[in-house]
């Protein structure tokens, strides 16, 4: 006899992974090439992590801020089908407007209450040229922004690390400073694998009223074996 399972259609839980990329004029040349290379390079490992966590549906999107602020990849793409499209550099650093764009997508709806904590990765080489503080404050009004795992990567020593720390909002997670392409590859790979792995866990966490993510992401990436040369 057919023993039909009670209940409607089953579904794993969405895990939204969003790149927030600085593509301002200062990123032109080696930096933007390295960024495109690093993200493209990270995709196979990210797919492997997703395969190992079938109860999470890893959905990737990307915001860019430079000449304009836009969704470079605006429709959530399952990581299994994800292909990187290169970004181009040019313009100012309107990071605040990028926070506004992000905030719109972290509301409920379009988010659902059953999602896993989103992973938000900010990568920048400079400092905001618009009102980041107000936009960030508005972003953090959204419950899913508060509960997201927020990672920040500085490309070079000129990046405004205070702004990145503000974005991360968690003393236990420091900005990652990449001074060359090799380090950038390492950090991006970590963000798209170890962090995704941690956020995929269904384990409950004690409710935290603080404005910090609540996902234990483990140790930060080790760059001791990498070149320490400052290129950027």
């Amino acid at each position: 006899m057919e023993t039909k399972r009670p209940g409607g259609v089953l579904s794993n839980r969405p895990l939204h992974f969003i790149w927030i990329l600085d593509v301002s004029g200062s990123m032109e040349g080696d930096k933007i090439q390295s960024l495109n290379y690093a993200i493209r390079n990270s995709i196979p490992a990210m797919k492997s992590v997703a395969d190992e966590n079938p109860n999470a549906e890893v959905l990737v999107r990307c915001i860019t801020f430079g000449d304009e602020v836009k969704w470079h990849i605006g429709t959530s793409v399952n990581v299994a089908d994800f292909e990187w499209q290169d970004v181009q550099a040019g313009g100012m650093t309107p990071m605040g407007k990028a926070m506004n764009l992000l905030a719109d997508q972290l509301k409920i709806p379009p988010m659902t209450d059953r999602a896993l904590p989103p992973v938000l990765v900010l990568i920048t080489d400079g400092q905001p040229t618009d009102d980041f503080a107000t936009a960030y404050k508005n972003l953090m009004q959204e419950s899913w922004a508060k509960k997201a795992v927020r990672i920040g990567i500085a490309m070079g020593e000129d990046a405004d690390k205070a702004v990145i720390e503000k974005f991360i909002g968690n003393k236990e997670i420091k900005p990652l400073v990449a001074n060359n392409s090799e380090q950038l590859v390492n950090y991006i790979k970590w963000a798209s694998t170890a962090v995704v792995q941690a956020a995929s866990s269904p384990a409950s966490q004690l409710k935290d009223e603080k404005v910090t993510g609540n996902v234990p992401i483990g140790t930060m990436p080790d760059v001791s074996d990498l070149s320490q040369d400052n290129v950027w």
């Binding site: 209450d113 999602a115 896993l116 904590p117 419950s143 899913w144 509960k147 997201a148 866990s201 269904p202 384990a203 409950s204 966490q205 004690l206 409710k207 935290d208 609540n214």
Partner: peptide
């Protein structure tokens, strides 16, 4: 009713 404050695997707990 469902508690709308509990998202992202967060929950109230007897250990509070």
């Amino acid at each position: 009713p469902k508690d709308e404050n509990l998202i992202a695997n967060e929950t109230y707990s007897l250990c509070d």
